[in-house]
Design a protein around this nucleic acid. Structure first.
Length: 836
RNA sequence: GCGGAAGUGGCGGAACUGGCAGACGCGCAGGACUUAGGAUCCUGUGGCCGCAAGGCCGUGGGGGUUCAACUCCCUCCUUCCGCACCA
């Protein structure tokens, strides 16, 4: 008898699929569409099983949806620009393109070897001019709409990457790619995309995503945008009527309780304020020291608050009171106004600060009990809801909410402030001082200034022969043929921009390009996109919760404003799969705990590897890879193959479908057991695919079904061929999304030609799944004391009677009075009896 | 500090809406077939007591609601993740 040989079977079916173009999908209004997408991979080095989990989940869903009759778009492509390629190229003395293309070829080989059902016609590579010219095109559109601008500012510089990073790429004060390398502050002129223009929309549209996105992703994005409503208030400077200090506060109602003004160390007014004071030299030195002391962000929350009194005073515009001006290490220049009013009674940070430096504490919001006392309070009283204002001039007696409203309005009327909303979100810095990325399509002309490259001159192609040093200057600057260009406006000499774009620009819109990958006139055809979008199911790691997913949402909104798409959100449902661990840590090349994808395919076959990936844990959870446990899945497929092989011969010509099912009434007891098990399995596996996505239980259920088949051996004696065939077919069909090659092989062995491509997901038949007899548990006082087998659907009183009639139960009850009898039909009877 | 998720046998994990805790798989033990078995098949496998029938205990700890709690409520502990001087 032929043994299960995954190598042969898998190669055979991969070839068949390819020849039949089994996974190609085009827009077809007559069909329901389903766009399922796994996050675009960065093609680097070898692929391990950690990578494969993402694609295995996506492929199972894609195949299931096809069997459900959907027109399924399931594309794949390459996030091909980026630093690792450039660094690897420098190390090896080759061109980044060479390294990248080799990796793509390898990635593709692995995808093919795993039988993933991609439509390869959609394949894109972001490093090809055909693709990145549209990055440039989008950039120019943004430039036209003032969504792209150039600004000199303090930026995050990674000394290892030798480039600046976006705020989103800084994790715990370190480079996201180099967790041990703190970013440095560097003043550089660079390009920004004005994502902040969409702050409110990015926040508000999350309401549309609540149903389909993981809550934690939405929470992370919400935190990142960090909207805060408050007011800007201008305090005067004593002795200088012309000067003012602006502060941002969310609690303008507490302004009468302010006992100091605190500036960030870098605040531009600081130097001027201390210039004339007697102890000038000493104070300036202290400030210089504070400025130099860079705190690691992780320590910020716990660091000791420090302040320096500037020997100058501000004037509270509401009360006219003079307040000392301080510099404080806990005030951030980047947020709000870079200055705060210090209200110790109602802000915990201010409370600590004033305690340390002996500044007065003054209660201006009293609690409902009226017990707050500045002399005795141990912490700030910062309740927004319940307090009433006291000692606050004309505002005394107002509620906090009312006071905030009225005081902001008054500040505006009197010209020293107004309501203001601030955000934590900053504009997206996209310039990178590296080579392997999209050239930014602008030039600088001495006469005309900044000149955008005209559309018809796109793409600005990355020149091939560039010396890569990794030394932190844009490599493109050293290529005169690239840099020197004729001004597009005046024809005079001009210089090209030599920075390239952050690769997150590439991945912000790639899923649109998949639908129309070779369009030379536009980034994509609007009608095609209208058919496929929004993406029905996006699958990827939680790492991209902010970065990629926020940028993509931003791009989508820009594209909508450009009239390119008619939706505001690109992704309806998002699924974040868990990490694959090995020995408790994430599988990764740098940790040295990888299980190679190709190695697995060669050793046990990709069907086994895929099945195990789905079986070992629910997909959203982290899973531990265990070579030993993989064996279990391998054995399962072998067993299944053997059972089918044993019976294929006599089943091949048998007609299936309705005959067997329709005959269920006349089926033997053993046949009924098989059919019942099969349809119960089908019901639950279908549920798993539709609702829960718990493929681990789906696999377990199919294993149980195979166990049942085995238990009914010899099958030829226990069931008619039509019944056996129906059960085996159901089994093969249910397995098809998860282990597609063996499923095809079994399907063919059963006598089907044409492959599973035409097979539909079977409908489960409730009457076949229904149990005729059920085991009912009998409890006495909540403890299981017996079990009886009864016909399904017995009425409650009958069930209660039978339970009490049971000999063993009668013995346990032993004449005690039954106080209560709880019956759960078809499940359980609980007799509550008097205690002895 | 704030917010979120989770804690179940030796291990990965099941238990859908409060109704038999431990499905399925790994591992382990015993057996069958075999020259052989790291192949295959069968049986057993939460702990304790017992020859057995059976009994008691058991889902991080403690308390509660209920005829009945892994599931609901309170409280504490642990782990992981996110945010963190955001004014």
């Amino acid at each position: 008898m032929a043994e299960y040989d995954p190598q042969t079977i898998e190669a055979k079916w991969q070839k068949v699929w390819e020849e039949r173009r089994a996974f190609e999908a085009d827009p077809d209004p007559a069909q329901r569409k389903y766009y399922v997408l796994e996050m675009l991979p960065y093609p680097s080095g070898t692929l391990h099983m950690g990578h494969m989990r993402n694609y295995t989940i996506g492929d199972a869903v894609a195949r299931y949806k096809r069997m459900r009759g959907f027109n399924v778009l399931h594309p794949m492509g390459w996030d091909a620009f980026g630093l690792p390629a450039e660094n690897a190229a420098i190390e090896r003395g080759i061109h980044p393109r060479e390294w990248t293309l080799a990796n793509i070829a390898e990635f593709k080989r692995v995808c093919y070897r795993f039988g993933f059902s991609y439509d390869w016609r959609s394949e894109i590579s972001t490093c090809e001019p055909e693709y990145y010219r549209w990055n440039q095109w989008f950039f120019l559109r943004m430039l036209e709409r003032d969504l792209a601008y150039r600004k000199r500012s303090r930026l995050n510089w990674c000394p290892k990457c030798c480039t600046v990073l976006a705020n989103e790429q800084v994790v715990d004060g370190c480079c996201w790619r180099h967790p041990d390398t703190p970013v440095e502050a560097k003043e550089i002129e660079q390009w920004f995309l004005r994502i902040t223009r969409y702050s409110d929309e990015l926040l508000d549209d999350m309401a549309q995503l609540e149903a389909g996105w993981p809550e934690r992703v939405l929470v992370m994005q919400q935190n990142w945008i960090g909207k805060s409503r408050g007011a800007r208030v201008r305090f005067g400077v004593a002795g200088n009527a012309a000067q003012g200090i602006e502060v941002f506060t969310t609690r303008i109602d507490t302004v009468y309780g302010a006992t100091a003004i605190i500036l960030a160390p870098e605040h531009p007014l600081v130097d001027g304020l201390v210039a004339g004071v007697p102890e000038h030299a000493e104070i300036a030195a202290q400030i210089a020291r504070m400025r130099q002391k860079v705190l690691r962000p992780a320590d910020l929350g716990t660091a000791e608050k420090e302040g320096i009194f500037l020997r100058r005073h501000a004037v509270n515009p509401f009360s006219g009171e003079k307040l000392p001006i301080w510099v404080g290490n806990f005030v951030l220049m980047e947020y709000g106004a870079g200055a705060v009013m210090c209200v110790p009674a109602h802000d915990q940070r201010d409370f600590e600060f004033c305690r340390k430096y002996g500044l007065p504490i003054r209660v201006v919001v009293q609690n409902p009990a009226g017990t707050l006392d500045a002399k005795t309070m141990q912490e700030a009283y910062d309740q927004h809801q319940e307090g009433k204002l006291v000692d606050s001039g004309a505002y005394t007696g107002l509620s906090v909410a009312r006071a905030i409203e009225r005081m902001a309005a008054d500040a505006k009327a009197r010209g020293f402030g107004e309501a203001q909303t601030t955000y934590r979100l900053k504009d997206w810095g996209i310039s990178r001082q590296r080579y392997w990325g999209t050239p930014i399509p602008v030039m600088y002309c001495d006469r005309c200034g900044l000149v955008p490259v005209p559309d018809e001159q796109l793409p600005v192609v990355l020149p091939p022969g560039v010396k890569l040093t990794g030394q932190g200057q844009s490599p493109l600057a050293s290529v005169p043929e690239f840099v020197n260009v004729k001004c597009a406006k005046c024809g005079g000499p001009a210089r090209r921009e030599t920075d390239t774009m952050d690769t997150f620009v590439d991945s912000s819109w790639y899923f649109y390009r998949y639908t129309d990958p070779h369009n030379a006139k536009a980034p994509f055809d609007r009608e095609i996109v209208r058919y496929w979008f929004p993406i029905d199911q996006y699958i990827g790691g939680i790492v991209h919760a902010i970065l990629h997913l926020l940028y993509s949402r931003f791009f989508c909104k820009v594209m909508r404003d450009l009239g390119l798409v008619n939706h505001a959100e690109p992704v309806t449902r998002l699924f974040c799969q868990g990490t694959v661990l090995m020995g408790g840590t994430a599988m990764s090349k740098s940790s040295g705990n990888v299980v190679g994808a190709i190695d697995m395919a060669e050793k046990v076959g990709c069907d086994t590897a895929r099945l195990y990936t789905l079986f070992a844990a629910p997909p959203e959870k982290d899973m531990e890879w265990s070579e030993q446990s993989v064996e279990g899945c391998s054995r399962f497929l072998q067993r299944m193959f053997r059972i089918v092989t044993r019976h294929a011969e006599r089943l091949r010509g048998v007609a299936v479908g309705n005959p067997a099912s329709a005959n269920a009434a006349t089926a033997s007891a053993k046949e009924k057991i098989l059919l019942r098990k099969a349809h119960q399995t089908l019901r639950r596996v279908t549920q798993d695919f539709e609702a829960r996505w718990h493929f681990n239980t789906s696999v377990a259920l199919i294993m149980e079904l195979v166990n049942e088949l085995q238990a009914q051996e010899p099958l030829e004696q226990n069931a008619r061929p039509a019944v056996v065939k129906e059960v085996i077919e159901l089994m093969a069909l249910m397995l098809a999304p998860m282990a597609p090659h063996i499923a095809e092989e079994l399907w063919e062995m059963l006598g089907h030609s044409g492959g599973l491509g035409r097979a539909r997901w079977p409908d489960y038949q409730p009457q076949l799944a229904a149990e005729e007899q059920v085991e009912v548990v009998i409890q006495v006082n909540g403890r299981v004391r017996g079990k009886i087998l009864v016909e399904a659907g017995l009425p409650e009183d009958e069930l209660a009677k039978r339970a009490q009639a049971d000999a063993r139960i009668a013995q346990v009850v032993a004449g005690r009075r039954i106080v209560k009898c709880i019956v759960v039909p078809d499940k359980l009877v609980n007799l509550v009896v008097e205690s002895l």
